[in-house]
Design a protein around this nucleic acid. Structure first.
Lengths: 334, 334
DNA sequence: CTGAAAGCGCTAACAT
DNA sequence: ATGTTAGCGCTTTCAG
């Protein structure tokens, strides 16, 4: 490895002069600067980022911690984060916790002091008490798309207005004429979506019997299984709101397997708008999370902290919107 | 930040003694070791990984470079790599190049010397000449799932036996009775799949007219568009092999949109076996790439190099296998 | 068993 | 404009 010292010797100059020339700081005569740059080029010099970091107390890398990148909800977001970070000269480390808090704690411990300048923590990938612990020690952290039932006191965060998302879903279904509804939801992590949904029903004087609130765990399989049991009832609901696209997709599968047509016999609406949702049959009507916005807002919040411009504002919210496709229809069919 | 020096002062010992106690190396009396450990605990000491790396010439992180994590083919692989790396005490940096070689070059330059101990490079995310350049300078590199038409001379790599994959697809279709075939392929990157496919036809004395070899670019959209034009023909093929699941899914959509039934009117087979393929309608029959195997083999190859046990073996190949689902059927329908 | 000292490659005052 | 020096936090000889 060729160091600035090597090229100092080669040019007969001092280390610091070389450093100045290379970094563009300080003052170096145009002549010697040229000489140094050329020499560096010839010798194949590359700055040692680790050494630089040690000296700088700055690593130019951030970490994104999430449950699992295999969940199709995340890749787009991560990519947008990476892109934005890159524009700030930062690289991105991603860490899957696989919903294992202990695992998440270890990962974060390891990254602490040294490896990264800040964290974006997504989903429910970590124990909130661990996070606040780190945050109180002035580690830049932003929560992104955090589980909706918790109130992580004072930590910068950007999230989706899930209550509103639930409302949008309910509104859509009611407008189509449905009155016999069911929701599949991962409680308590998705309680806001549920609450938003119910709030609209309530406003119209409707309610949902407890047995029509079904527990899923956000996976496609859980959506399938739960919906399957639903379709065994004598009088299944005419419309289902799945709090996650993956569960909605599972529900559609279950419906088709049960010999029902979607949307003719049952309408199904999801929440997320992951890539595949547009490409299943029927294409899924869903409440879309604006992923790019989410990612960019989170990244900017993080850099604000890293650059010390931190003002702990309240949780930032991004607005979801309805994406009409073909898994929902009027009831009764007209 | 509390350093070993801080805890040295606090305990009245020397820096190096503390270092020894903390690392378990050297010799420290049980009594003082205890004292040091406890003190470290109390003061909330965390080793500074960057400093350690500088001293060690070892960063304990590897980079995975790929075109885009948004392609559903990658997340599973990346996760497996991350997992395996973690077992070796390594963390994983992921870099999307977005198929932009220049971008890839820059990223790699930045990581060079300092940030990572090695690279796993996937897909056609980088210019091969850049890669060989780095490799010749003894940077540990392994190519994973590399584009099949190139022969990256001597660089360790693990790939899928795509020729065989193409054969499996052809065999399946022929066994079902199909004789009027088409393939959608991203040439030249996927030429091996195509060659394997054609080799089987040839062995049976069959051939494929040029107009039945359609160019796609591995995206769902391209599969859709290409298949759409195909279905406008008077006598469309009875079976299609799409060299990528995403293109196959697009082809299925095109078929359905054209009023054709899959598999009754047209059989469609993919290659990859991404997660969603099992969940579209009809579920996609495909040639599966063993992703876990691929990831593990690549990671092990990389660590072999990092640990200096490198013996440049020939390209390692993993075997694909057929996954029967419901997008293909006998012809004529029985 | 413990301590002193040098060095990893780079930065940043401060002197010359 | 260039050089000297002292770190950054840790590892690793080598003495005491």
């Amino acid at each position: 490895m060729v160091t600035i010292y090597d090229i100092a010797r080669a040019t007969g100059l001092a280390k610091s002069t070389v450093a100045n020339a290379l970094s563009g700081k300080g003052t170096v005569s145009e002549a010697t600067r040229r000489r140094i740059l050329q020499c560096a080029e010839e010798m194949g010099y590359r700055p040692n980022m680790v050494a630089r970091s040690l000296s700088n107390h700055k690593t130019s890398t951030i970490a994104v911690i999430l449950p699992t990148i295999s969940n199709p909800f995340y890749p787009e977001i991560v990519e947008a984060i990476e892109q934005t970070a890159l524009e700030h000269g930062y690289q991105t480390l991603i860490c899957n916790t696989h919903y294992n808090f202990e695992h998440g704690r270890l990962r974060m411990e390891r990254l602490r002091s040294g490896w990264v300048d800040g964290y974006i923590i997504m989903g429910s990938s970590m124990d909130i008490t661990d996070i606040t612990g780190h945050f109180q020690q002035d580690i830049p952290i932003v929560l992104c798309d955090w589980q909706e039932n918790e109130a992580p006191q004072g930590i910068p965060q950007v999230s989706v207005d899930f209550f509103r998302a639930g409302q949008l879903a309910a509104q859509h279904l009611l407008e189509l004429g449905h009155r016999d509804l069911a929701v599949i939801v991962d409680d308590p992590q998705q309680s806001l979506r549920q609450a938003g949904f119910l709030s609209i029903l309530q406003a119209r004087g409707l309610s949902l019997p407890g047995k029509r609130i079904l527990p899923g765990n956000s996976t496609l399989e859980s959506g399938y299984n739960v919906a399957k049991s639903l379709f065994k009832e004598e009088q299944p609901p005419t419309a289902i709101f799945a709090a996650t696209d993956l569960m909605a997709i599972g529900a559609i599968e279950a419906a088709l397997d049960a010999g029902l047509r979607v949307p003719e016999d049952v309408s199904i609406i999801g929440l997320d708008d992951i890539f595949v949702s547009a490409h299943i049959r029927p294409p899924l009507t869903t409440v879309a999370v604006p992923k790019l916005q989410l990612a960019q807002a989170a990244t900017h919040l993080l850099f604000a902290q890293i650059n010390g411009e931190a003002q702990v504002s309240d949780a930032q919210l991004v607005e979801p919107h309805l994406v009409l496709r073909r898994s929902t229809a009027t009831y009764p069919i007209t």
